[in-house]
Simulated scan of single mutants.
Amino acid sequence: MTQIFSPVADTWLRLFLLGSAAVLVGGTVGIIGFARSAYITSTEVRPAQPVPFSHRHHAGELGIDCRYCHSGVETGPQAGLPPTETCMTCHSEIWTNSTMLAPVRQSLASNTPIQWTRVAKLPDYVFFRHDVHIAKGVGCVSCHGRIDKMALTYRENSFTMDFCLDCHRDPVPQLRPQDRIADMTWKPSADARAAGAAIAAHEGVRLGELTHCYVCHR
């Protein structure tokens, strides 16, 4: 009887199947890793801005509250960017001839807003409101990280669906008192879960509904 396959054919078949599985698994892992990389999520990227504004100096060293510049964060869906008049509240008195601040002075003189490059942004298909999160006890640092330490602003968190869902599944440990919303150095008590649960109950956080699709996609 003639043998159709050589004695090593079975070995080659096994190697082929093993190699195919390795390529499939490796390719899948690679695609997922690339999708979550800083290149795609834009984390750690410091985009060029018209003025090299330093949160580390203003929020960290000077202790300016986030809400002084981002005045819409408690009242609307967007935190908002400060109008030039807000900048000039201080800079009409200090650093008045700074070359670095020339775009600010020009903006005021021409009554034209400064065209900042957005750092924190979500896709258009995501429904998000700053005021709701602030009202329920989510602090600035939970999403934006220690922005008070950033010399140039960058996105610390990826703002992927996973990032949002991780909090929505169990927001209780993230919640803080209203008077600590913008406090970057605040630490919860020893029993953060009990304290957060009390805040969630007081603010009416509907814990069982936060992962429903319609919460973020409308």
Rank of each mutant, 00 (worst) to 15 (best):
M161N: 11
V205K: 10
H133R: 13
T117L: 02
P83Q: 08
R169V: 04
P113Q: 04
E209Y: 05
C66A: 06
T112W: 03
L13Y: 09
I114W: 12
Q49H: 01
Y68L: 14
V205D: 03
V215M: 07
R14L: 08
H55R: 13
Q174S: 12
R206C: 01
S20P: 02
Q174G: 02
A198N: 04
V45L: 11
Q49A: 00
D170K: 09
S20K: 11
T41I: 11
D191S: 00
G76N: 12
L122F: 01
I147R: 04
D179N: 13
I147K: 01
C213S: 09
G27Q: 07
R218I: 14
A197W: 04
M88Y: 03
G80N: 08
F128W: 13
F163T: 13
C87S: 09
D148H: 04
L18A: 12
V215W: 01
T86H: 04
W12N: 12
M88I: 15
G60D: 10
I114P: 02
A190Q: 08
G30R: 10
R146P: 02
A109Y: 06
L207D: 03
A151N: 13
F159N: 05
R155V: 10
I32S: 04
P188A: 05
W95M: 09
G204Q: 11
V25T: 05
P173I: 13
E74C: 00
A35N: 14
G26L: 06
R36D: 13
G19C: 10
D179L: 10
A194W: 00
P77R: 07
W186F: 11
T11H: 06
L17A: 12
G139M: 05
R129H: 10
C140T: 14
